[in-house]
């Protein structure tokens, strides 16, 4: 199951005209999930399937609002039809350094996701995608739970996720990673 791996890579599909699509690979290079963003939707709507046939939906990530500024994104396990958590962008702080609050199903703050450093974040904003982004997912007591890093490639967006602490629901980490690939990947123009 895609959610329970400790490491996976999300790669943006090239030559997609409307809406972004991503393949998720396990460390051996096998496709474990396929994600696509619905095109022409006012609110972000990202769906994760078992494969490109889109026959089995695993998860959906949906924005609560149209504007991305301080937007919250709800994650639903499609097999159980149950909300598992949410990610809320911290609008003002994200202008300098991307910061997210990770929430549980009842919108309680359970973890934080941040770009690696303010200096690097500022440099990235000046040099676009030439310096790949790195994110640390930490618990409220500053324990690292997962690390996400974008590979240097000006043409294809590729992000590897390494989960180091399984006390957080792995589906939330997975949904957050897919969301980052869709949202942050678009911001950097990758």
């Amino acid at each position: 199951m895609a959610f329970h791996l400790n490491e996976y890579t999300i790669r943006r599909k090239v030559l997609k005209i409307f809406g972004a699509s991503f393949h998720v690979y396990d460390p051996s290079g096998q496709v474990i999930a396929f994600s696509s963003q619905k095109a022409f939707k006012l609110k972000e709507d990202i769906r994760v399937f078992t494969d490109e046939s889109k026959s089995t939906e695993l998860m959906s990530v949906r924005a609560r609002q149209i504007v991305d500024f301080s937007a919250a994104y709800d994650m639903v396990d499609s097999r159980e039809n149950k909300k598992i958590g949410a990610a809320r962008r911290k609008g003002w702080s994200s202008m300098v350094r991307d910061s997210w609050e990770i929430l549980d199903a009842d919108d309680r703050h359970i973890a934080s996701l941040q770009e690696d450093s303010t200096a690097m974040a500022l440099l990235r904003r000046l040099l676009s995608n030439l310096i790949p982004q790195k994110f640390h997912l930490t618990s409220l007591d500053e324990r690292e739970m997962a690390f996400m890093h974008v590979h240097f490639n000006p043409f294809v967006y590729r992000m590897t996720v390494s989960v180091s602490d399984t006390s957080i629901d792995p589906r939330i980490v997975f949904g957050t990673a897919v969301l980052l690939a869709a949202i942050e990947g678009r911001q950097t123009g990758a």
Partner: peptide
Amino acid sequence: AQVGGIVNCPGCDQS
């Protein structure tokens, strides 16, 4: 804050 989003129903626990 939940307007426009998804919540779990306290009755059936479905989204």
